[in-house]
Design a protein around this nucleic acid. Structure first.
Length: 793
DNA sequence: GGGGGTACTTAGAACGTATTTC
DNA sequence: GAAATACGTTCTAAGTACCCCC
């Protein structure tokens, strides 16, 4: 069996050493097991799993669900849905029709069920205040008063204040809406040729607008890593050549190497500069024009409620920027025409006008879907959707359900862990693989790991981990090294249960290099099993659950109720960081990071220098102050050499300030047509800097500094306090930055940490929510903001 | 059971704007 | 006041999960 170089040494040691002595003694068949390649079911595990075998006959659900049977969703589901065609049937039927017969493309069954609201043209300024019609949101409410109170958005539907909150709606065929009206999608503007000629073989060439557009896509990326990527270059060039063939001038371009896109790149740089130089008014005007064009697409009316639309813009043509080693990176993503776009609208909704001379691909009325528009992208054949924004009722409810599902797991997780721990030793290899994978998903928050095609980047998750992605180090250490989602490297060394270590070793030996470790497990099977443990449970729920529970524990542990707000924020960010590390949310460290940290260090020292000077003044006014501990302490890291350099810099800066003020004065005088100041004047002014240098030199030798007459002890104490605070804040900032160097906190905050933990924490600790949630997050998590301060995940 | 399709969430990169620093 | 940097938002790629069909 082939084995990885790095592993081979370990491997030999593993063979004997990694097995606990007790097992080696009681397990005469251990050696035999390794020689069994495809079926190790007769291994030692049967003797080891004795304890579990008694329970094997008991259905799993019964074994682990003493607490609560999963949701009574069935009873909540609308009765009417039962007779309905499935989502797929609905869309299928609807899709074959073209927009011209919008009435007829609704399946008969659906038409009957729909209470037809009267057709009204889409007017986002007058959303009706009709109550929602779906069961999920149709409980009686007394919200009128509250709505009036709401100052920011009177149309905001506070679904979370309903008596009956929605339960599950994900991946079911339930009707999501009764009426749906929107204004379609916004297409990118037509291409306007710039006429700048790129060069081929050193000579300027003319291109058709279409060819120029594609060349410009590449030119725009000239200074990025994409343009340097050979795969990107190749894919771009191939697709561009196809476009060039259609060019009536038929330019002979056969070699990528001979192409010089720089003239176009330079043109874009110039445009950027010019854009920066626009006046405030010009910029404002552009903004207003853009907003006007977008206006009508911003909102949809769902069951009479105004809801914000998310990505109503059709993606403009571009070069596909695949992440990592994507085989299709650089390919041309072509312009999307209305003829490719299908709209989802209510039966009685007014169909938005397609752009002049065009038709929509279709108009459907799929009430089981939440998308407003869809089209297929040409590079990967991926389906793109227009959905409502994150602040919408649908997204908010779905978000809350996600966290509620994760909280539900809290009740089951002990039992699930007990079972998979037991099943690590199951006699069936499939079961052991499943248990081992569950262990990794639970403990390391790995993703499920669906299989991927050859036309995608080679990235993996738990179920698709291959031989080479885990190295074993006896007795129980695993070294993970693989590319996960977005080709982000997952590198982690963990000590695991001995049985997990043993299992991985066996699975690896069975498959060999290049093959999947869990060769008898797919995410689909795993999820099916998880669903039998707890309704709605899937691999990804573990990630949410572990992220949120980690955050809750960490933030509780790290927060000191007596701390200042900045300290509490530091604790908050630390807890956030723990989660980001768990989920492997990375960002590339900025190139200037080290520089930045050393600059913060300088800033701290400069503040300490300032504090030292203030203290010396304090001593001059009140000698007793020197005895007070808070003023007596010398600045610990202000070294003589540093002070000398710093003072030199201070003098230099003073000099520059004087010079620049002098120049400005002269400019002003020139403008007023008055005689300018002379070099002698400048020399005179610069004397102030020399005086400063002298003073600093003198003071450096003194233990006390005589302050200005107006200065009092109180004033100095207040100043010192201020400097102290600034030093403290700057130090915190430095710590935070250093610890945050390669960790991205945003993703976990946005997707994994239950916002209610944050809200409760802020309440409990008197920290304004705005300090931890940006405006977008505030809006997205409105639903979470009414919970009490003692709420826990 | 495996491949393809659909609908939705999650993710880092890129971009735009605000704030800080010089 | 300009340049540098930080921060927030937008964009769209890349996942998960489930369904259907053969």
């Amino acid at each position: 069996m082939s084995s990885n170089k790095g592993i081979s040494n370990n491997q030999q040691r593993v063979d004997l050493d990694d097995i606990p002595l007790s097992q080696r003694l009681t397990n005469p068949r251990f050696a035999k097991r390794r020689s069994v390649r495809s079926d190790d079911s007769s291994s030692d595990s049967d003797s080891e799993s004795d304890s579990s075998s008694n329970e094997d006959d008991v259905p799993l659900a019964k074994r682990i669900l003493p607490i609560k049977k999963t949701i009574k969703r069935e009873t909540i589901k609308q009765e009417t849905i039962k007779q309905e065609p499935s989502r797929r049937e609905i869309s299928k039927q609807a899709n074959v029709k073209d927009e011209s017969d919008s009435e007829d493309d609704v399946p008969l069954a659906m038409k009957k069920q729909l209470k037809k609201p009267k057709a009204e043209p889409m007017d986002i300024d007058k959303p009706s205040k009709k109550r929602p019609a779906t069961s999920a949101a149709s409980s009686p409410v007394k919200r009128d008063k509250k709505v009036k109170k709401e100052e920011d958005d009177p149309d905001l539907y506070k679904w979370w204040e309903e008596e009956q909150l929605p339960t599950e709606m994900e991946h079911d065929d339930s009707v999501k809406w009764t009426s749906l009206q929107h204004n379609g999608v916004l297409f990118p503007p037509d291409y306007v040729p710039h006429g700048v000629k790129m060069k081929y073989d050193g000579k300027p060439i003319s291109l058709s607008p279409e060819a120029e557009e594609v060349a410009s896509f590449f030119a725009a990326l000239l200074e990025t890593e994409h343009a340097a990527n050979p795969v990107f270059q190749k894919n771009f060039f191939e697709d561009w050549k196809v476009v060039l063939k259609r060019d009536p001038k038929n330019p002979k371009i056969t070699s990528f190497e001979k192409c010089d896109f720089r003239p176009i790149w330079e043109k874009f740089e110039k445009d950027k500069e010019a854009k920066k130089l626009l006046t405030k008014e010009q910029k404002m005007q552009i903004k207003q024009e853009r907003e006007k064009a977008e206006e009508k697409y911003l909102y949809a009316i769902v069951d009479g409620r105004k809801e914000k639309v998310g990505n109503f813009r059709i993606e403009p043509p571009a070069l596909f920027r695949g992440r990592g080693n994507h085989p299709k990176t650089g390919k041309l993503k072509t312009r999307v025409l209305p003829e490719q776009v299908t709209l989802n609208l209510g039966v009685d909704a007014v169909i938005p006008e397609p752009p002049k001379g065009h038709k929509w691909a279709a108009v459907v009325h799929d009430q089981t879907a939440t998308w407003l528009a869809t089209w297929k992208e040409n590079v990967n054949g991926a389906i793109k959707y227009v959905f409502l924004a994150a602040t919408s009722t649908w997204k908010g409810q779905s978000d809350m359900q996600k966290f509620e599902k994760a909280r539900e797991l809290k009740k089951y997780v002990k039992a699930i862990r007990d079972i998979y721990t037991r099943e690590l030793k199951d006699k069936l290899s499939e079961v052991r693989q499943r248990a081992t994978a569950m262990y990794l998903i639970d403990r390391l928050a790995l993703r499920a790991g669906n299989e991927k095609g050859d036309d995608e980047a080679d990235t993996v998750g738990c179920c698709s981990l291959r031989y080479e992605h885990i190295q074993l180090e006896p007795p129980n250490t695993l070294h993970f090294d693989f590319l996960g989602k977005d080709s982000i490297r997952y590198q982690n060394t963990v000590q695991v249960e001995t049985q997990v270590f043993k299992n991985i070793k066996i699975f690896k030996n069975q498959v060999g290099e290049g093959h999947m470790i869990f060769d008898r497990l797919t995410p689909s099977e795993l999820n099916k099993y998880l669903n039998s443990c707890m309704k709605g449970l899937s691999a990804k729920v573990f990630r949410t659950f572990n992220a949120s529970i980690t955050f809750q524990q960490q933030v509780d542990l790290l927060t000191n109720p007596n701390d200042s707000v900045p300290d509490k924020l530091l604790s908050y960010n630390r807890a956030n960081r723990e989660v980001a590390i768990l989920c492997n949310h990375q960002r590339s460290a900025s190139k200037t990071h080290d520089q930045m940290i050393s600059r913060i260090g300088d800033r701290i020292r400069a503040l300490k220098y300032q504090r030292m000077k203030l203290r010396k003044q304090l001593y001059a006014l009140d000698a007793k102050m020197k005895k007070k501990p808070e003023y007596a302490e010398p600045e610990s890291d202000l070294e003589e050499d540093w002070i000398k350099v710093h003072e030199k810099e201070l003098v230099q800066k003073e000099r520059e300030r004087i010079k620049s003020r002098f120049e400005k004065q002269n400019e002003k005088l020139a403008a007023e047509k008055q005689p300018k100041l002379t070099a002698a004047d400048l020399k005179e002014k610069l004397k102030a800097a020399d005086e400063l240098a002298d003073r600093l030199k003198r003071e450096s030798k003194l233990a006390k500094i005589e302050p200005k007459p107006s200065v009092t002890v109180e004033k100095l104490v207040a100043q010192i306090k201020k400097v102290d605070e600034r030093i403290y804040a700057t130090k915190n900032q430095a710590t935070d930055k250093e610890e945050n160097k390669e960790v991205a906190l945003g993703t976990s905050k946005l997707n994994y940490i239950d916002p209610r933990i944050t809200v409760a924490w802020c309440r409990k600790n008197d920290v304004p929510l705005e300090k931890v949630f940006s405006k977008t997050l505030m809006d997205k998590f409105r639903w979470a903001q009414k919970i009490p301060k003692d709420w826990t995940f």
